[in-house]
């Protein structure tokens, strides 16, 4: 009897701390954000007036928000494609372990994983400096990377690629090493060259990881904030204003929490859509063992 009573309560005791935190800082704010998105707030963030979907209507009819969504999409694409290509090259280079060389490469390739967006922004800032930065010097160009409307997004994306390529590399190299050597051997015996082996064998075999990495990079870049705030503040104009940055501006500079909450909900829905799409694709198209 005693034992069974104890068993009744024990699980909830073990779960309580984690769920208390979830309730306070995930579930509650999530619901509150949804509620707040349907209201107008005062500058202190108190909900004053219920307005239904008006915040959303305002958002989607404002040219600024539509441009923000476009910039966000462009930014994600500008980040994940190069990240994937570079990550794959790095992974192929270190796939085969050969002692200290590959260990050293692994360390160097994954180094940016330890770097915060704020620190990255600081070291990259000088690289971009138009007058005495190394980038213009090496390329022989005269581009004002962070202040030119045509280049600012590209520059911020470059920093983001650098920040994310380490993660991508780690996932890809782990997957590549998981490919059975026997598979490659047999293919080689059948006359395949490295190029064919990569496209016809390794790539299909690691396709689950590949898909994962694409979505991982998209979600990660979607949430970029530090580098944008510190390098361009969303400018020039709105050329680098991504969703998270506009959300931040709306809440903490314009003090329009209702509208900012609506943006949060849009952000959540986009992430949800991406995730569901990912699950869908994985079920269908990816080659699993």
């Amino acid at each position: 009897m005693r034992v069974s009573r104890k068993r009744d309560i024990a699980p909830y005791v073990f779960l309580a701390p984690a769920f208390l935190i979830f309730a306070l800082f995930s579930y509650f704010p999530f619901l509150k954000t949804i509620l707040m998105s349907a209201t107008i707030t005062n500058s202190g963030g108190e909900m004053k007036k219920f307005v239904g979907f008006r915040n959303y209507l305002d958002l989607f009819t404002s040219a600024e928000f539509v441009s923000t969504l476009a910039v966000t999409g462009k930014f994600m694409a500008m980040v994940f494609v190069p990240t994937l290509v570079f990550g794959m090259i790095m992974a192929l280079l270190t796939e085969r372990r050969n002692g200290p060389v590959s260990v050293l490469s692994e360390v160097l390739f994954s180094l940016p994983m330890a770097v915060a967006s704020a620190s990255a922004a600081i070291v990259w800032r000088m690289v971009f400096n138009p007058a005495s930065g190394v980038l213009n010097y090496i390329l022989g160009t005269n581009i004002n990377w962070l202040a030119d409307k045509n280049w600012a997004l590209f520059s911020v994306a470059m920093v983001t690629v650098w920040l994310q390529v380490g993660f991508t590399f780690i996932f890809l190299v782990t997957a590549l090493r998981g490919v059975q050597p026997e598979v490659k051997e047999s293919a080689m015996i059948d006359g395949a060259n490295a190029w064919n082996i990569f496209w016809k064998i390794k790539l299909p075999l690691i396709s689950p990881t590949l898909f994962f990495v694409v979505f991982f990079n998209m979600t990660l870049s979607f949430q970029s904030f530090g580098q944008i705030r510190l390098l361009t503040q969303g400018g020039p104009g709105t050329s680098t204003t991504v969703l998270v940055y506009q959300l931040y501006q709306e809440a903490f500079m314009n003090k329009r929490y209702g509208s900012s909450a609506a943006m949060s909900v849009v952000l959540f829905l986009i992430m949800l859509a991406v995730t569901l799409f990912q699950i869908r694709l994985e079920r269908k198209g990816v080659f699993y063992n």
């Binding site: 306070l24 704010p29 929490y257 959540f268």
Partner: peptide, 21 residues
């Protein structure tokens, strides 16, 4: 499932509400 669902809620989507609270 409820615990894992929190992964789906991006921190940026709740940051304003958390800040106010």
């Amino acid at each position: 499932v409820a615990a894992l669902a929190t992964i789906l809620i991006p921190g940026d989507a709740t940051i304003i509400s958390n800040f106010l609270t």
